[in-house]
Write a protein that binds this DNA or RNA. Structure first.
Length: 216
DNA sequence: ATAATGATTGGC
DNA sequence: CCAATCATTATT
């Protein structure tokens, strides 16, 4: 399989604290070698979910269930879950074993396997930037585009058909925006935590930064 | 065994 | 705005 990017992330890369890792993931590339070919995209938006104390996290309260089990294992593995009866979402497990934390990948910039992604998403390619972003500008959209589902549960990003690559140098903090997580309003106080991170002004972010309207 | 609910999306 | 659609989870 070809490798256009700077380097595969190492197992030890995933050992850093979750807030650091969440920011580090921005600008990196996720690739998946599925039966129909290879697809890849640049990470432009993530959210972190932090173990037993985070009301918004599936691991809140320290519950270990078949679904959340992988979050209690070592970092760098894929936590894939099914929601709303029809969608899959992809997370990177973080934190040491016993610390159930994860980072939800919320948006990618499509880079490789565009035709295959469009096929899986049932979209036409028109060539416009906004059309391209529609392939992967949402957590369930990117899972569908990459061909990631329950089969990918538990795969290691450093050692499997699902991979995370370094590409850009780490982003400067001025290039990263933060804000509250999306759709966690049931989580009380935790709903306010600024645990969503995205690349400022990037067109593929799922929920746009508020642009100040200039009056004419 | 049964019921509630959701880390979403797309269509009206 | 709201329906689609079902695995997971908690509860009986």
């Amino acid at each position: 399989m070809e490798n256009n990017w700077k380097g595969l992330a190492s197992k030890t890369f995933f050992g850093r604290p979750t807030p650091d890792l969440a920011r580090s993931l921005l600008g990196m590339v996720i690739a998946h070698d599925g039966p129909l070919g290879r697809c890849a995209g640049r990470v432009v938006e993530v959210e972190m979910y932090r173990g037993p104390d985070d009301r918004a996290a599936h691991s809140f309260g320290g519950k270990i269930t078949p679904r959340t089990r992988v979050m209690y294992g070592p970092p760098g593995h894929a936590y894939v879950y099914f929601v709303y009866g029809m969608h899959y979402c992809l997370n990177v497990v973080t934190g040491p074993p016993g610390s159930p934390e994860a980072i939800l990948i919320r948006a990618l910039e499509p880079l490789q396997g565009i035709e295959l992604m469009a096929q899986r998403r049932h979209l036409e390619i028109t060539g416009s930037v906004s059309n391209l972003c529609q392939l992967t500008n949402g957590p369930a959209k990117l899972a569908q585009a990459l061909g990631v589902a329950q089969q990918e549960y538990g795969l290691a990003f450093f050692n499997s058909r699902l991979q995370l690559y370094h590409d850009w140098d780490p982003l400067a903090s001025e290039e990263i925006a933060t804000g509250p997580r999306i759709n966690v309003n049931y989580a009380g106080e935790a709903a306010q935590y600024p645990w969503r991170f995205w690349i400022k002004n990037h067109l593929c972010v799922s929920v746009k930064d508020r642009i100040q309207k200039t009056k004419t």
